[in-house]
Nucleic acid binder design. Structure first.
Lengths: 176, 176
DNA sequence: GGGTACATGTAATCAGTTACATGATTTA
DNA sequence: TAAATCATGTAACTGATTACATGTACCC
C-alpha cells in the first residue's frame, strides 16, 4: 500500500473535495464539480468513480458501500490522505496555466480559411463567452453567500477571463 | 483508409502546421509549436511523431523518409487532408475554453491549508505570471513582423490573460 | 402503471505522457 | 577527440474519454 507521487491533478480534486466534506459519494462529487472547478477543468464523471478507487488502493481514502438500495459508495479521507493533500497544498506550484481553446486554435490557423469564416468564428466565440459570463453571474448570485471566499475568488477569476474573451473576440469581429 | 472524425485537436494542430508549410518534419513542428500554441496548449513532442503517422494512415498526410543520414521523415498534406482541415475550420466551434491551472486549483482548496500558505501561493503565482508576460513581450518583439496577423492575435490574447492573472494574484496577495 | 429522467456505476479503447535510446553536430 | 548538446525517434504504461448498462424515483 504505497502512496507514491502517482497522484494526478484529478487525485487532488478528489482529495480536496472529500477533505472538505467527509463522507461523499462519487455522485455528490460530480454535483460539486459541475458548479465549480468543472467550469475551468472539465472531465467526465467516470473519473470521479475511477479515481476514488485508486485513492482507496493507495490508502488515502476509505470506501464503504451501502448494502441495499442504490448500493452507493461513500468515501472518507484517511490521515495519510489528509497529509498528502496538505503536502500538495504546501508547495506553491509554478506550472504555467494551460488555456485550451479550440476557438483560439482555429483563429491561429484561420489564414488557411477565408476572412468570412474568421469573422463567423469571432462572432460565435463572442456570443459564447457572453453566455458563459452570464452563467457565472447567475452562479455567483445563487451560490454566493454559501461559498468559501476561495471558491468565490476562483469564480471571480473565471468571470474576468470571460470579460477579457468577450472584448477580444469583439475586436476580432470589428477588425476587417 | 477511412477518414472518420477520429481526429483530435492534436490532429488539427498537425494538419494546420503542415498545411501552412508543406514538407515538414516532426522536429520542425516541435520548433514551431514551442514558440506559439505550445504556450497555451502544451503537449510532449512525442505526440508530433505519433500523430502524423496516424494521419498518414488516415490518408490525410503522406510521409517520406530520407534514405541516409538522419533518416528524418517529411510530411506533406493530401487533398483529403486539406479538405478535413477546411471542414474543421468552417465550423466555428462553441466548446468552452478550458483553463487548467494548478495554482487556481490550489487556491480553490486552500481553505484546507493555512493563510500563510495561501499567501505564498499568491506570491509565487504573481511572479510566475509576470515572468510569463515578459516572455510573451520578448517573443512578440522577436517574431513580431514575421508572424501572421492571426498568430499575433493569439499572442495578444495570451498577453492579456497574463496581465489579468498578474492583477488577480496581486490582489490575492494584498487581501488580508 | 408505463414512461421518462435521474442516479450510479462498469468496460473497453486509445490518446497522451513518461522514459528511454541512439545518431549527428558542435564546442572546448 | 572527448564531451556535451541537439536532433530524431520508439516503447510501454495508464489516465482519460466514450459508450454502455442497470436500477430507482418521480410524474402523468
Amino acid at each position: 500500500m504505497p502512496s507514491p507521487p502517482n497522484l494526478t491533478s484529478t487525485s487532488y480534486v478528489v482529495l480536496g473535495l472529500v477533505a472538505g466534506c467527509d463522507g461523499m459519494t462519487s455522485y455528490e462529487m460530480k454535483q460539486l464539480v459541475a458548479c465549480s472547478i468543472g467550469y475551468f477543468w472539465p472531465f467526465p464523471h467516470s473519473q470521479l468513480y475511477a479515481e476514488p478507487h485508486r485513492l482507496v488502493h493507495a490508502g488515502l481514502l476509505t470506501e464503504e458501500t451501502e448494502p441495499g438500495g442504490r448500493r452507493r459508495t461513500t468515501y472518507r479521507i484517511t490521515a495519510r490522505g489528509r497529509r498528502a493533500l496538505a503536502d500538495w497544498l504546501a508547495v506553491p506550484s509554478t506550472e504555467p496555466t494551460e488555456i485550451r481553446d479550440l476557438g483560439l486554435l482555429k483563429l491561429f490557423f484561420s489564414a488557411q480559411a477565408g476572412p468570412d469564416q474568421r469573422a463567423a468564428l469571432a462572432d460565435v466565440q463572442h456570443k459564447a463567452h457572453l453566455e458563459r459570463l452570464r452563467e457565472y453571474q447567475e452562479l455567483r448570485e445563487q451560490v454566493g453567500p454559501l461559498a468559501t471566499p476561495e471558491a468565490l475568488a476562483t469564480l471571480e477569476m473565471g468571470m474576468r477571463f470571460e470579460q477579457l474573451a468577450v472584448a477580444f473576440w469583439a475586436e476580432q469581429t470589428d477588425e476587417r
